[in-house]
Design a protein around this nucleic acid. Structure first.
Lengths: 339, 339
DNA sequence: CTGTTAGCGCCTTCAG
DNA sequence: CTGAAGGCGCTAACAG
């Protein structure tokens, strides 16, 4: 790579001091107009840009924020990232993304890396493995140092930091209620294992909705999908045990898979079985029939998380950590009966 | 945020010089074992980490690479990013991602930002708007400075830089040939406008396959989707003009949309109409029937791009730019007839 | 064994 | 109007 042009080199070129050049480039009228213009022209010609590392070292701030997400090949997370990008860019920051790939070790490494001064703050969502291990010491260290941290979606309630989540319980309640109100009586739940907090919360909402409508929660109608095995087979087993007339699934993939299983077994959607998913991505939109779903507003979530983080970074005083709870809404399409 | 601990502070604590501390932390035996251990213990206690900015400024390398992609909410691009992450992390680098959102201006800004010394090299894929405007001066500037650059997928053939692409023409040929060989005679093409290079190449492959089988390319059977309007309606218009018995679409969304339109018009897939898509994402896998598709190997592409870039960054001598062409393969599922 | 010095690229007083 | 000096945090060569 061609060596970059620096203040020093420009200074040598004009046989003036570095600080003169620096001022000239800042268009300071401490410098004669003549010299200023010459230096500026020269700098433009050679495409001078202040070395960002030097500037950051000087200012003791990087104008970069770190993002740690479990996965990027996932509509929800990529929407969140898009939201984060949107506001950080608008506010003059850049984004450095690291993927934990749902792995505890990688998450720890990522966080460790980020705290060496390369970013001004962090936005994170916890990996599944971390949730299973229930070991959050890496995050706790951050908080002890008052490192600006915002967690989203997969959070830990105990942390005293900014959080942005959706109201999973209500979302699931609404979905389940909708199924009940459109005539379903045997509603299955397709969810994650309980360690995944959002799965647990959505299950809670599901159970609550059943109870408030006087229905029993029947474990025979619930599947906790083990992602190490075939999702499809686990749902087929549900059908073998007990055929539902409604299905609430905690994500798109489970929902569409359930729908496909149902159809292959000869059931009609929504006439025989209604299905509702969670997260409004292309999979839901392009499914046939298009999937009724709980819309999760990942983009908004990303924007809010970024706003919280930048506010914290830029504020002089301590500010109390906030918890923002975004409400979901039910996008009714064709996989459920009309009222 | 709690002020970070520095060598200086540790030095003051022990009333030694900064370089003593530096050496002690590097476990240099220039320093007495006793002092070394004390300093190390202290550093660990206070969770000392060298300030990465200072180190990078010193070393004149950031160990960060920049990635500019048009979109992240897109299975192919997120797979590429995952591939990039995989090898960069393995080789001790981090990744900074910027989204151009398919916008020319944002792309220019991103690239501009990246060349201020914050990254050692760049991996990029061109935005649609840039392809339409056909203005590549921002990339050309990079090349003039010998800035390490690898382009992938949406590239410009004229650039003298490393490139990783897939063999779009062959991929499209294979897909189209497969349709022909399984009995289709009126094969429609659903593609992008011609400015999008990969769309143009896939169209070329489609036409080639038709010709080599003695079939005419019929513009009446082609749709160039204008994404500003409804994709679905544009495909419906195709059906109104001319009902095909096979459809080759240049991406997942077009393919599944086409399939859905066909079914709603009462056609059976694959009995009446066969459909093949491009890019093997969840949308294809979860479609009903699961979509036969040209597999694009985004993960591999990302890995290769990153290897090329890091090799270039780390090499002392000039190395000739390489062009890696990844071949695709046809993943046959249920949306096409068997031979 | 420990310290001094210089320098990475930049910026900001403060002198002249 | 211009320049010298000091400092951001760290490393490395060189003294002592």
């Amino acid at each position: 790579m061609r060596p970059k042009i620096t203040l020093k080199k420009i200074a040598k070129e004009f046989e003036v001091s570095i600080s003169t050049v620096s001022k000239a480039l800042k268009d300071s009228n401490e410098i004669s107009k003549d010299l200023r213009e010459k230096i500026q022209a020269f700098a433009k010609l050679y495409n001078y840009k202040p070395n960002s590392l030097a500037v950051r070292l000087q200012n003791q701030q990087t104008k970069v924020i770190g993002v740690v997400v479990p996965d990027i090949v996932h509509h929800f997370f990529s929407m969140v990232i898009r939201g984060i990008e949107e506001v950080t860019n608008k506010r003059g920051y850049n984004v450095m993304i690291c993927l934990s790939n749902e792995s505890f070790d990688k998450e720890v490494m990522n966080i460790d890396m980020f705290t060496n001064g390369s970013v001004d703050g962090l936005i994170a969502s916890i990996s599944k493995e971390t949730q299973r291990k229930n070991d959050y010491s890496h995050f706790k260290n951050l908080l002890e140092d008052d490192f600006p941290l915002v967690m989203f979606d997969r959070i830990n309630e105990d942390f005293n930091c900014d959080k942005v989540i959706i109201d999973d319980v209500s979302g699931a309640m609404n979905a389940t209620s909708h199924l009940i109100e459109t005539g379903c009586e045997k509603i299955a739940l397709v969810t994650t294992p309980n360690e995944i907090t959002v799965g647990a919360l959505r299950k809670k909402g599901y159970v609550k909705a059943l109870q408030s409508h006087g229905l029993e929660a029947d474990t025979n109608l619930m599947v906790e999908v083990n992602e190490k095995q075939s999702i499809r087979e686990q749902i087929e087993e549900l059908f073998d045990r007990n055929v539902p007339d409604g299905i609430f699934a905690v994500n798109e993939v489970y929902a569409v898979t359930a729908m496909n299983v149902a159809r292959e077994k000869g059931f009609k959607i929504p006439e025989d079985i209604s299905v509702i998913g969670f997260t409004d991505g292309p999979i839901s939109q392009l499914a046939l029939p298009p999937l009724t779903t709980v819309v999760q507003h990942g983009f908004t979530m990303g924007k809010q998380a970024a706003e919280l983080l930048l506010d914290r970074i830029e504020s002089k005083e301590d500010i109390q950590p906030q918890k923002i709870v975004l409400s979901t809404n039910l996008k009714i399409r064709k996989s459920t009966k009309s009222v």
